[in-house]
């Protein structure tokens, strides 16, 4: 099992050069059945990551480019009257896929955003009074442009909370960039990728995440982290129980990817910026520095 996971990571690494950490985060997010929000500038490889993940994991893949004039039906699907049969037939929207890449989600209106986010939470879609289940597994990778860019609608906190993780890819490393210059073609690599596992194997992997053992000591650390966010005057809001659980799940998935059967504080620290960064915010704004401080001020070992 460990072999498969490392193969997956290596495969994606061929496409997305020098971004092993982010790849592992994305995989951890998927393994703990969460949705991923990638926040970065255009052209950093957000789409490539999503596409590569879909291919390697053997998932059906759809991509939706969000625009400001988009309507919920454009995502969910629509019932159309067919003259031949004389009845309405539901045309599934792009949401009916195992891996949905929602590109630039903050470009669309809140109405459309919330339609997608509802589907993410419920894993089902209600159209024309009929509830349709989404395929299993269902995994959304949304990308968003940094908020200061024009024509964006910020996702409200309650909807940010639906995303297990928020990662940003960042500029490639010097080596990776040099490799790109030297003619490595990620597109071609992407096409060459073969699925490593199928849906049932993915399901088994996801089940394994729950079996990663969390000792008292590490749970204690988690608890101290969470209570620090709730008590520190810097944090406007603390981590919700959902946020705390998300942290635990993601850390477990990270441990599994690392090939361990037990949780280490490092696992929590590894996923903490991604899991807590978009859930916390201070008076002055973003939670990134807060997470930084959180990691430094809460000791790993209770003294």
């Amino acid at each position: 099992m460990q072999k498969i996971i490392s193969a997956i990571v290596t495969d994606i690494g061929k496409v997305l050069l020098g971004k092993e950490h982010q790849v592992k985060l994305a995989l951890a997010c998927l393994l703990s059945r969460g949705h991923l929000l990638i926040e970065d500038l255009p052209g950093m490889g957000k789409t490539t990551l999503a596409h590569a993940l879909a291919r390697v994991l053997g998932l059906s893949y759809n991509r939706v480019q969000f625009t400001s004039d988009m309507l919920p039906a454009d995502i969910l699907g629509v019932s159309i009257f067919e003259r031949d049969s004389g009845s309405f037939r539901f045309h599934e929207g792009p949401v009916f896929s195992q891996l949905l890449l929602a590109d630039e989600i903050n470009r669309s209106s809140p109405k459309t955003q919330s339609a997608l986010l509802e589907a993410m939470e419920e894993r089902q879609v209600s159209v024309d009074g009929e509830t349709r289940a989404l395929p299993e597994p269902f995994f959304v990778i949304a990308t968003q442009n940094p908020l200061h860019q024009s024509g964006t609608f910020a996702l409200p906190e309650s909807q940010l909370d639906r995303f297990l993780m928020r990662v940003s890819l960042g500029y490639p490393t010097r080596e990776a960039e040099r490799a790109l210059f030297q003619g490595v073609d990620p597109r071609a690599e992407l096409r060459r990728l073969k699925p490593r596992i199928d849906a049932s194997a993915l399901n088994r992997l996801q089940a394994l995440v729950g079996q990663v053992k969390a000792s008292e000591s590490v749970l204690d650390y988690l608890e101290r982290l969470v209570s620090f966010t709730r008590q520190s005057p810097d944090c406007a809001v603390g981590l919700s129980p959902r946020g705390a659980l998300a942290l635990l799940h993601a850390a477990r998935a990270w441990a599994l990817i690392d090939g361990r059967g037990h949780l280490l504080p490092e696992d929590i620290q590894a996923v903490l910026p991604s899991v807590a960064g978009h859930r916390l915010h201070s008076e002055s704004g973003d939670g990134t520095q807060l997470v930084e401080r959180l990691m430094h001020q809460v000791d790993v070992i209770a003294a």
Binding site: L264, P265, E266, Q269, M295, H296, Q297, D299, V300, I301
Partner: peptide, 9 residues
């Protein structure tokens, strides 16, 4: 050891 530094680090 720095505060918040995990054992491996």
């Amino acid at each position: 050891r720095r505060s918040g530094e995990a054992p491996r680090d």
